[in-house]
Design a protein around this nucleic acid. Sequence first.
DNA 1: TTGTAGGCGTTATCAC
DNA 2: GTGATAACGCCTACAA
Lengths: 366, 366
Amino acid sequence: MSAARSGVPAVPTLREVAALAGVSIKTVSRVVNGTGDVAASTASRVEEAIATLGYRPNPFARSLRTGRDDAIGLVVESIGDPFFAEMTEAVAAAASEAGLFLIHAGAGDSAEEELAVVRGLLHRSVRGLVLVPCLLPYGEAGLSVGIGGVPAVFVDRPAAGVRADTVLIDNVRGGYEATAHLLAQGHRRIAFIGTAPERFTLRERLVGYRRALEDAGVAFDPDLVVPHHRTNEARLLEAVLAGEDPATAMLAANAVASIAVVRALHRIGRSEIAFVSFDDFPTADALTPPVTVARQDPGLMGRSATELLLRRIAGEDFPPAEILLPVTLVPRGSGEIAPTRPAGLSACVATAPSSRRRRRGAPPSA
Amino acid sequence: MSAARSGVPAVPTLREVAALAGVSIKTVSRVVNGTGDVAASTASRVEEAIATLGYRPNPFARSLRTGRDDAIGLVVESIGDPFFAEMTEAVAAAASEAGLFLIHAGAGDSAEEELAVVRGLLHRSVRGLVLVPCLLPYGEAGLSVGIGGVPAVFVDRPAAGVRADTVLIDNVRGGYEATAHLLAQGHRRIAFIGTAPERFTLRERLVGYRRALEDAGVAFDPDLVVPHHRTNEARLLEAVLAGEDPATAMLAANAVASIAVVRALHRIGRSEIAFVSFDDFPTADALTPPVTVARQDPGLMGRSATELLLRRIAGEDFPPAEILLPVTLVPRGSGEIAPTRPAGLSACVATAPSSRRRRRGAPPSA
DNA sequence: TTGTAGGCGTTATCAC
DNA sequence: GTGATAACGCCTACAA
């Protein structure tokens, strides 16, 4: 380790460039930053010196002086998740195109960790942040991000109490349409399979699900809402498929849950159960039957977020944007299976006191 | 934008801490860095001042002085690829645990871009690099990474001409075992479906495939090796399934190719074709039939690489490590399908002059 | 159009 | 054990 990098020529500084070009440090600085007026002849001489020496400005000296870093920060819950991976790729591409480094961090396992991570990024004077709020209540963290602070865009989930740009997908509408699609096939007993119910996206999708049921005059049955964790995978669907009024269709609230449902259905050999997945996944169209999905576009999400962020960084001023990305229903087969038994009893026991019983068709605005 | 961050208290500096504690800045520096001897009483007074002021060292000033950054760089081909996403997550976790930021960059679309990215990272004085070499011939880039330069670990593919730690998976053995597995079911016509053949991992897997064939006395038929690109997906398997001696089994050389094969087989309804996938993917066990895979562990790869890197960063000196991670064959059904027709003619036309015709069983050491 | 002086917040060198 | 003081490389005044 000791003599490492001994033969490597030391990186040149402004001073050396200036000496070689026969000008002052400041002139070189002007040329490098394109600021102020420099005579064309001087400039070209400086350019030449820069080229021969291979000069590159020292980022730390610059950051120390200017108080900012040519980087943006990205905080994501879990980058291993294919959804966030694709989003991250889009952010990385946009950042690199803008000449900014991307400093990337996981949100950790607690609000404290998440706060520490964001603080760390801010302390490094990143130009902006792309944040997927996870455990941290940003509104109460006193972080000075967003409008009036360090540019920040919240992605996938909103951050209550913070004025900042937000990029979400239309979870309510997606949940509504997926459910309406199954209702249209004649299903009345539709199970909602999801992971942790405390998560924003899931709650919203559940809202859409309930609205669709209500609009169709189908009673909401809490027994049909099944959380999914690693621990209950083995008998995930047991409850909803048992009893005298079993589910005839499934709506899985995200890719992880979908894959669990696919596995479960496959294991028990119930390919006649209708199924819609919220979120597409690689082999969805190669399964038997191919899986109908409500598709979001994580890449678009990342691009939209970074675009907003770059505009903020450039100094543009506009009211907090709230971009709502569409969810597209892609029928592939599994969602177009009709119920095996006639609609059943439950359709008659409609939701009790509800005057607004519009027909499905015009989904509510989320 | 103008009055942004006006109400925010300025970040405290060493000087202010020193003033509050009634000591010199150097003493505070000593306490912060745990360097040199400081009297316990002074130290505690300084600690207190640090706490009340919420002091944190300015990373740029520090980096300017020390010439290094508390960060590692990660260059990956495509972070959207689930394989690299999982790897990245492991690297990110390890980095964060070590108190290092992770600066993340895509390799871009050309050797020049890749070089620029790595240079950029080096210029930022990262402590180390995790690199998935892509288009850049590192050996000829004159980069001073690895032993004797900036600590670097190459992952997934080796970098010719560079002395550095490397973490690979045993592609040859994996290809061998996957092929041998199909041979053991009686298959003699096994197609090898892969993406770009210029890629290291693919070449190696192909080597394993050929060795397995050779050891089984089965002639290698170049017509059974099919590249896969986006453009030929529609009729990916046409050629190998046509003719009078069609393939009865498939080996897909990576997850992307596997998914294409799954789709293709599904589309043409040939579920009786045996199939092994190099690389696992989320729904592999939920397909019909469930897909037998040769599984690698991207998380382990990331962890191993970062562990090596951190040891280098800590100053440990040891000869370049070459870690070869295992590939595990996971039989699930698709790979255990026997050929529908008897082994066929081709088995007789064995590889011409090959004295070493060992039986399959003991795979070659990669 | 160009140059000089000073300081950004740290760490390193030396005295005390 | 502790403290002045000089860098690190750059940018922002201001002066010429």
